[in-house]
Design a protein around this nucleic acid. Sequence first.
RNA 1: GCGGGCGUAGCUCAGAUGGUAGAGCGCCAGGUUGUGGUCUUGGAUGCCGUGGGUUCGAGUCCCAUCGCUCGCCCCA
Length: 412
Amino acid sequence: MTNELQPVRGTRDLIGEDQRRHHHVVETARRVAAGYGFDEWTTPIFETTAVFARTLGETSDVVTKEMYTFQDRGGDSVTLRPEGTAGVCRALVSNGLTQSLPQKVFYAGPMFRYERPQKGRYRQFHQIGIELIGPSEPLADAEVIACGWHIIDALGIAASTVLEVNTLGDRESRQAYRDALIGYFTARKDRLSEDSLMRLDRNPLRILDSKDAGDRAIVAEAPTIAAYLTPEAAAFYDTLRRHLDRFGVPFRENPRIVRGLDYYGHTAFEFVTDALGAQGTVMGGGRYDGLVAEMGGPHTPAVGWAAGIERLAMLLHEAPSVPGTVAVVPVNEQAEPAAIDALQQLRRAGIRAEMAYRGNMRRRMERANRIGARAAVILGPDDIAQGVAQVKDLVSGTQEPVSLDALADRLK
RNA sequence: GCGGGCGUAGCUCAGAUGGUAGAGCGCCAGGUUGUGGUCUUGGAUGCCGUGGGUUCGAGUCCCAUCGCUCGCCCCA
């Protein structure tokens, strides 16, 4: 196979079972989110680069190294969206919807990140997500999490995931905690891994989720944010946990969940699994009260999550089955016109029906079997003369004549 | 950007010490011109990832390169 015919690194085709799994995840999420009152938005898959760069910090690694950024023919810098939230917030502001809160948004679609592919990690991947924009009450956070849990449960994978919840506190809490962590890790810098020494400089909170065994021992003794929460932040977190219990959502507290950017505060959560190798997070989210303002809109509280469709699809225990079809089988070429009539009668009645394009009867029966048809409608000259078709149940093997105008009713 | 593993038929894979490429599944056709699944007979299929080197001779050894994969880093 030549290079040119290979898919670009980190992209892949969704065909057959892959596509069915993908589709099932999206449809399930769409249905459950609709039940919580979320409306679907479709925003462009590329935006002006500033939409992402501004919210991510102009010089961070993710902006400089991991975004698909291009100049278009007019010379403008555009970027394939690396995540969904920024575009939704831009659309909120562009459409003047900051005056019509709350907004409850569901989205699904492709995202793009220039990363080294590995298990559960692609350059073009797909996410579903919801954003609840407007409310600042922890009830909103609880509802958003409940919706996510509900989707995971509806997909039948609740047993293989765990919901972990944490609070990042308010700005004051975060600053105090950050200072405390820097003090703690600096006092132990001779025992930190090389990677974590870098983190101490650039992003000390990330030491908390280091994979290095030595680091983890140090992290286990590190202070948690609980002692540094302001009374307001502590009350917010208490209320959230109480609501989660009320919503019936099982969770575990994990004080090591962190977020890298300043606009995050209070709630942070992840649904994690150990079934996907190094990519343990299946759904992640939290409260981002500062984001809309950073994009140039009015201060607008918001909370949401995003989930990787590929990762959810991999967790599905079995692939959604192919829909049963009815195979129409003309015995010979002379029977084809009558077969076409039967075919269209079934389709108009909403029954999935197919007819092979060539081959003798035997071939067409083999084909019917291969595509997993549930029944065959067999039409030969004798049948047509009598105004019937032979309807054969391909599972049981039983066959009986059915009046031509009763086919759809019989095969419903 | 860094490290491990792997590239042989459509798919999964076998090919000791170098001797001119195989199996299973799938596919096509016959046994069966109005009946699928099971059975049976026959058939097609390969730039052995690519380029170079060593050799009388390379799928096999050496070098390079590309790709896939798992992990590190990063994770909005």
